[in-house]
Simulated assay, not measured.
Amino acid sequence: MISIKTPKFASITAAIVLAAASTAAMAQVMVGGAPMLASKDIIDNAVNSKDHTTLVAAVKAAGLVETLKSPGPFTVFAPTNAAFAALPAGTVDTLLKPENKKMLTTILTYHVVAGKFDAAAISKMIMDGKGMATIKTVSGGTLTAKASGSTVMLTDEKGGTANVTIADVYQSNGVIHVIDKVLLPK
């Protein structure tokens, strides 16, 4: 669920954003050196990205593969390997241990939103929210989305920020937005 404030911005700006997003959606997106096919689901595409091997390993360790292969739709903010590597030393190894599955699951589902929200939808929510949109994640936490120039920036509940580096990677069961940091719930 996504909550926003009362719309106040001009609809012409939203129309321009929607048109640009529709044009971008027609082009095949490459992520991690692999084509992302809209006919494949989130997992089937993610396993082909060399930039998301840590995320895929974490999704497997958390037991979320079947969930992210289901019809959804889902919006996934997908941290890169570099984003995971930027965490304090040993964090990823610790999270991947079976005894930490609950914590890993909470962190991963904090990057997932129920529903399909492409860049145009998120941009509209930010405009409608007077520069800010609050996004409810599957884990029950919230992310705050803001625009910084042409980039969407997400802020987690601990004040950490991530930038969307590749938007609108369409999947058969949703959309992925590649981000440059791991977002952390409270």
Rank of each mutant, 00 (worst) to 15 (best):
A38K: 15
K40C: 10
K40L: 15
I43G: 11
I43E: 15
D44F: 08
N45D: 10
N45M: 12
N45W: 13
D51H: 13
T53M: 07
V56I: 11
A57F: 06
A58D: 04
V59Y: 03
V59L: 04
K60Y: 07
S70C: 11
F74V: 02
V76P: 02
F77D: 02
A78Y: 08
N81P: 13
N81D: 14
N81F: 02
A82P: 03
A83L: 05
A83Q: 08
A83T: 09
L87P: 15
P88W: 05
A89Y: 08
A89F: 14
A89M: 12
G90L: 15
T91C: 13
T91W: 05
T91M: 10
T94R: 13
T94F: 10
K97D: 06
P98A: 14
N100Q: 12
K101G: 08
K101V: 11
K102W: 10
K102P: 06
K102C: 11
K102S: 15
T105G: 10
T105I: 01
T106A: 12
I107G: 06
L108H: 00
L108F: 03
T109C: 05
Y110Q: 05
Y110T: 04
H111Q: 03
V112H: 06
V112S: 01
V112I: 09
V113H: 01
A114W: 06
K116W: 07
K116F: 03
A119N: 02
A119H: 01
A119R: 02
